[in-house]
């Protein structure tokens, strides 16, 4: 058959984002503009997962891109993947903002039970990343149920040990212990 069409796959996209980051690191404003257009939606999604207020999330987003402009020269395409690098910065900034706020007033309202049935996969996620996500989810499944719930909730809400303990009504020591054990099991499973 002549000519079959397919949406550009994630690998090509990842490659392009890495290329832009490299150019941004060299001070290329056009690449920065392109990078913003291609990635700002995803990064705002990351910020808003943790911060309830759109205004706060967009302030963090602004800060993230200013940081990216300054730090892109440190991005190493051989060692890191562009989207992972970017989303990690966004998430860290969002959690920093959460921690800096009094009484965590900014936090997205988060129900621990809800996390259990979190409809994880977004239909647009593709190939390579989807495979890794399935692996992460599979490994999480191997943990005891409490560990699973706590780790998912912690990751998606950015709550501290103390907040998780108070929300789940479990002793702080137990929460720490479940999460730490879960982390070690998760790592062991992912490294298998």
């Amino acid at each position: 058959m002549i000519g079959s069409s397919a949406v550009l796959d994630r690998d090509e996209l990842a490659e392009q984002i890495g290329a832009w980051l490299t150019q941004v690191g060299q001070g290329d404003r056009q690449a920065f503009d392109a990078l913003y257009r291609a990635t700002s939606g995803a990064l705002l999604g990351v910020c808003m997962r943790v911060l309830a207020d759109r205004g706060d999330a967009e302030e963090v987003l602004q800060d993230v891109y200013v940081t990216v402009w300054g730090k892109a020269a440190q991005f190493d395409r051989q060692r890191a993947r562009g989207m992972t690098w970017l989303t990690t910065i966004a998430r860290n900034r969002a959690i920093d903002r959460l921690r800096a706020s009094p009484a965590s007033a900014l936090r997205a309202d988060f129900d621990i039970v809800e996390t259990l049935s979190d409809p994880a996969p977004s239909p647009a996620s593709q190939a390579e990343s989807a495979k890794e996500r399935v692996r992460l989810d599979d490994c999480l499944q191997e943990l005891e149920p409490r560990g699973q719930i706590l780790i998912r909730t912690a990751f998606f809400s950015g709550q501290t040990y103390e907040e998780l303990a108070s929300r789940s009504g479990s002793p702080l020591g137990s929460v720490k212990s479940w999460i730490r054990r879960g982390l070690l099991q998760l790592r062991a499973c992912l490294e298998r």
Partner: peptide, 29 residues
């Protein structure tokens, strides 16, 4: 650890930022 958890970050739904964010970034730079 960032690498291990990254699949969860990459799966989140994108939310388009307000149009004023980009000019603010430019201004801040």
């Amino acid at each position: 650890w960032e690498e291990r958890f990254s699949p969860w970050l990459l799966q989140l739904e994108a939310i388009a930022p307000s149009p004023q964010v980009w000019p603010r970034i430019r201004t801040q730079l």
